[in-house]
Amino acid sequence: MRWLKIAAVATVVVLVGIQWIPTPLNRGDTRADKDFIALYAPPARTGTLLKTACYDCHSNHTDYPWYSRFQPVAMFLGNHIEEGKKDLNLSEFGDYSPRRQRSKLKAMSSQIEDGAMPLTSYRLIHWNANLSKADEKAVLGWLKSEIK
């Protein structure tokens, strides 16, 4: 019983303690002339879906759900953002060469088709990011019409 109490207190101490670990906010440059949605002008619904399902990890601007400012969620998300932006940055899409833009479009479509994106771990903490089958179809249909 005593051990249980100690373990409980220790857990609380750790959880409170890690709140001081800083995680930088992802709020960098977003310019309309480089932005994916501004450049490709998808239908409104597709644009909204991409914004909610992909932009948090693949752009320079994350809309943080309130609970994501708490550790360890913040670290976890921060890490995904860093890795995600390395592979695909929708805020700087206009900086990719036409060839790379095409590659990225194709990768986006494949990732959605394979159910690999948005990351499962993220869907668990960010329920809005879940794409329904109908959402997927709308987004994929559009992406494919852009790839040709």
Partner: peptide
């Protein structure tokens, strides 16, 4: 009808890479 006017935007990538 939802896809609407996307045709006007669709060609900027394809033309330069295909």
């Amino acid at each position: 009808e939802e896809h609407g006017d996307h045709d006007g935007h669709g060609d900027h990538v394809a033309s330069s890479v295909s």
